[in-house]
């Protein structure tokens, strides 16, 4: 309950913060529409040459694009800016203020920044997803939707944990922005089904940079491709990643305070 009220407060501040620079709204809108336009253009070109890509129809890939935009929107709404802020706080020493607050520090740093206009990406993602589903004649059942939400959550948890671990590295190495840039470009690979990539890359995108679980798996749920195996792996991996990233974060904090030395 208290966590929710705190999240709401941080969102409100995020809105206030962005209202200070109103132009950002239009810039973001333009940027989101442009990237949507290019993505759909790309899809159109690919599917003018072929009917299916790695077993996916055009409309399924459109749904995948919706998921890609939605998840990307959530990452850029809160996860990425908050983690960037963490690195900044460590460098400037302002993390000390967070650590002297009577709340869980991981929770505080994870929601510290909200770039509210990124919700445009989230809404556009939902719109694209719905368009794809309507195109297909809304042929999905209630279970599919439930499973979709489930694997979307586990995927989100996996991606969040992954980000947290990357950002936690900052306790040992002060400058790690470059790693984040690499992640960003890897994430871009998620706009296509993981199955179309060569083996080694598929491995990388599944386990090293867990884009597969965040995007491909949820999209599979919507097109009836989801295997029980994927569901189980998603759940187990998300629990493991949440626990492991928390342990890693605590480890980083210990290093920060000199408790590990």
């Amino acid at each position: 309950m208290h966590h929710l009220s705190l999240i709401w407060t941080f969102f409100r501040i995020g809105i206030l913060n962005e209202l200070a620079y109103r132009i950002n709204f239009y810039v973001q809108l333009l940027q989101s529409l442009l990237s949507l336009g290019t993505a759909i253009g790309g899809l159109a070109i690919v599917f003018s040459h072929t009917d299916s890509l790695g077993g996916w129809q055009a409309v399924d890939i459109l749904a995948l694009l919706g998921v890609f935009m939605f998840v990307g929107g959530i990452i850029r709404l809160v996860i990425q800016p908050s983690m960037a802020q963490l690195m900044e706080d460590v460098r400037q020493g302002t993390l000390d203020f967070t650590l002297t607050k009577p709340r869980d520090a991981q929770f505080l740093i994870s929601i510290s920044q909200v770039r509210i206009w990124r919700v445009i990406d989230i809404f556009l993602g939902i719109a694209v997803l719905l368009t794809a589903l309507i195109y297909r004649g809304l042929d999905i059942g209630f279970t599919d939707v439930l499973l979709f939400v489930l694997v979307l959550f586990t995927g989100g948890a996996i991606i969040y944990s992954f980000w947290l671990m990357l950002a936690t590295l900052t306790f040992w190495f002060l400058r790690i922005e470059n790693i984040l840039v690499i992640f960003q470009s890897m994430y871009e690979a998620g706009r296509w089904p993981i199955g179309i990539y060569p083996h080694w890359l598929r491995f990388v995108l599944t386990f090293l940079v867990p884009v597969a679980f965040a995007i491909t798996v949820p999209a599979e749920a919507l097109s009836g491709r989801l295997t029980t195996e994927s569901i189980v792996i998603s759940i187990v991996l998300s629990i493991f990643m949440l626990a492991f990233s928390r342990w890693f974060w605590k480890r980083g904090l210990k290093n920060y305070s000199g408790a590990s030395a």
Partner: peptide
């Protein structure tokens, strides 16, 4: 200030 109010409950 509001932010601190929320943090400190």
């Amino acid at each position: 200030f509001e932010r601190n109010r929320a943090i400190y409950r």
